[in-house]
């Protein structure tokens, strides 16, 4: 089944994060409940590396295709 996809670029990253309830802070990124956003390896995500959020328990990914391999391998196959 096809999912709805929203793309963003560096210029619209802040608007995207705002829509998702994510906030920038000195440490990195926080979600709407004040929890630090981590990638699939549970590493704190740096703002410049923010690559999006995928369906399935809010999977946050870095702007790196390796994160897509991990996502598809664990959640989509």
């Amino acid at each position: 089944m096809e999912d709805i996809i929203i793309t963003f670029d560096d210029a619209s990253r802040d608007k995207t994060m705002e829509m998702l309830g994510l906030k920038k802070d000195k440490e990195g990124i926080q979600d709407s409940e004040g929890m630090t956003v981590t990638d699939q390896d549970f590493e704190e995500m740096e703002l410049k590396n923010f690559g999006g959020a995928l369906i399935g328990s809010k999977v946050f990914i870095n702007k790196d295709s390796n994160d897509l391999i991990d996502y598809f391998s664990s959640k989509r196959i």
């Binding site: 998702l20 809010k58 990914i61």
Partner: peptide
């Protein structure tokens, strides 16, 4: 925002 998942995939265009 407070749900277990977002209703769509949100990805940087470089990853599309």
């Amino acid at each position: 925002q407070k749900s277990p998942s977002y209703p769509c995939q949100v990805i940087h265009k470089d990853l599309k």
